[in-house]
Design a protein around this nucleic acid. Structure first.
Lengths: 211, 211
DNA sequence: CCTACCGATCGGTAGG
DNA sequence: CCTACCGATCGGTAGG
């Protein structure tokens, strides 16, 4: 009979995960060694393998658990049943807030998921698609007609560009924080997509056959 | 006495550079091996070291020469002496066009420059700062007052987010190309920043001491 | 310009 | 017999 996991097992695992996220974010997944991670955690290298099958398993856990957090935000905002514009603002604001508190995890998600094997990468990507779909739906509600022109997902991706790119330039010791940028991004997005569907932007694509 | 370079030297070098950009973009710099690159180029591994001092030198050449191309675009648009709005549109459109033709180089710039040593990374970063400054100046001309609120560079970075993030989602075989997205991004940016400085966005930061 | 090979370090696991 | 954990070293491969 298995005696089960020690009560500190999950705590230790969470410590390793946080330390790995910090290290992978700074050095990138392939450049960060298990020896380095062990040292940062203050444990021996073999002990890491007690908590995680292998190096890639750690990367997967960071990305997958973080996507679950983002999906929780999506679900939480949806439950609030807001009007279109406040709904999109709530999504943007809560995401930027989460980004500010999960900088390392988010950097790993953006830069290191490509190092996962196909099957594990697909599991993370599937969750990312659900988040994108939620944002595409939110912009479609604010500006109906984007979807008919197949612009709902592109606009959602342009929006993700604005907020995800912050990890390349927002410094922890800089003038502005993620929370400071949220209202700026909200305004650019809301004003930027207003009437987008009525303009002749992309109109030349209108006649391409639907499929 | 040095015998000088063979006439094909620069041609061979350019071939290696293009192949390396493709490989680094796909596998990332640390994961791509010199043996892999040699095979892709159809030459022996030691021959690569005839054209480049070491692996990092290839990465530096990709990033540095690509930044020179982007700076050429900035200079070319500046020389046209356009009004504020057409000037910003021209920058965005010509950048998106360049991105569409230099996808591998751009992906390497975004994801692999961090693997350069401090001195070489700084040389590339210095050129990136000049490009950012040009965009910050362009948005300030369209919406005067952004700089006084220290929002010109953040807005420029939000703008770069929109266009640089395209490399994570625009597929070569997809419905839309970089050229298709240029007018969409132009409109979101121009409408999005219109009147940004007059709103109460970030107004709480107004009273912080200038330095 | 190749084959052959190095010092070092990688991720992962043995015995105890 | 289990778990939790160490010092030492495995096979294989990286850049050069």
């Amino acid at each position: 009979m298995a005696r089960g996991k020690a009560p500190t097992f999950e705590v230790q695992r969470a410590t390793i995960l946080a330390e790995a996220a910090r290290l992978f974010a700074k050095r990138s997944f392939p450049n960060a060694s298990m020896a380095e991670l062990a040292k940062a955690c203050g444990v021996s290298k073999p002990l890491l393998y007690h908590y995680y099958r292998d190096k890639e398993h750690i990367l997967f856990d960071i990305a997958d658990s973080y996507m679950d957090q983002l999906l929780d935000i999506v679900a939480g905002v949806k439950a609030a049943a807001l009007a279109p514009q406040p709904h999109l603002e709530a999504l943007l604001t809560r995401f930027m807030d989460e980004y500010g508190h999960s900088q390392h995890r988010h950097m790993v998600l953006v830069q290191d998921v490509k190092f996962l094997q196909a099957e594990q990468a697909e599991q993370v990507t599937a969750k990312q698609r659900r988040v994108v779909a939620a944002f595409a739906e939110a912009v479609e509600r604010v500006e109906p007609g984007l979807r008919r022109r197949h612009l709902d997902k592109p606009v959602a991706m342009i929006l993700f560009g604005m907020i995800n790119w912050t990890f390349t330039w927002l410094r922890a010791d800089g003038r502005f924080t993620h929370a400071d940028m949220a209202p700026v991004v909200c305004r650019i997005v809301l004003e930027g997509i207003r009437g987008l569907v009525d303009k002749d932007v992309m109109k030349h694509k209108e006649k391409s056959p639907a499929h």
